[in-house]
């Protein structure tokens, strides 16, 4: 997977989180996998069609998810993730992937993104692509966000 397709997602994630007040955002571990095993509680998945086809997943612990939702709602405390909270997470994954697709189209790659799904569970095994998935940990002041990118290019 060419790095020029990966960077827009990391830049978009950083940009959106910074918008909501997160700091200390830096790239952590990277790995290639066929199977995505997630031991955190929440994963938001968005699809992509057009010149690049694939899926992008953002995984995080419930605690981090609540902090992100709280940050999106101007710091309002979030005790539990109710329907509004899940809606906010969907919006978050939309924003990140949408911004990434804008960055891609700026470099001449036309794509469109598909509706997000939020998956809650324990010990979840995912396959999000028929080709290998690239996993990048993004460390932030709100907690860790694990980004899994499966693009068919």
């Amino acid at each position: 997977m060419d790095i020029k397709y990966i960077l827009p997602f990391l830049e978009a994630l950083k940009g959106v989180l910074e918008q909501f007040g997160a700091v200390d955002i830096r790239r952590g571990d990277m790995a290639r996998n066929d199977l995505m095993y997630v031991d955190t509680d929440i994963t938001a998945v968005v699809g992509m069609v057009g010149q690049v086809r694939g899926n992008i997943a953002y995984s995080m612990a419930e605690d981090t998810a609540k902090k992100i939702v709280s940050a999106m709602m101007m710091g309002m405390p979030v005790e539990e993730l109710d329907e509004m909270g899940r809606s906010a997470l969907g919006e978050f994954s939309n924003m990140v992937t949408g911004n990434a697709s804008t960055l891609l189209s700026n470099s001449g790659v036309q794509v469109d993104i598909t509706p997000p799904s939020i998956i809650f569970g324990k010990d979840v095994y995912f396959i999000i692509s028929s080709v290998e998935t690239l996993k990048i940990d993004m460390e932030t002041s709100l907690g860790k966000v694990e980004v899994n990118i499966g693009l068919e290019i």
Binding site: L89, I118, V124
Partner: peptide, 20 residues
Amino acid sequence: RLAPPVVFAGRDVVISIPRL
């Protein structure tokens, strides 16, 4: 146009599609 499929299995899995 379809994106590729996502498939998953786990314990007590709940799926949410906000606002749809």
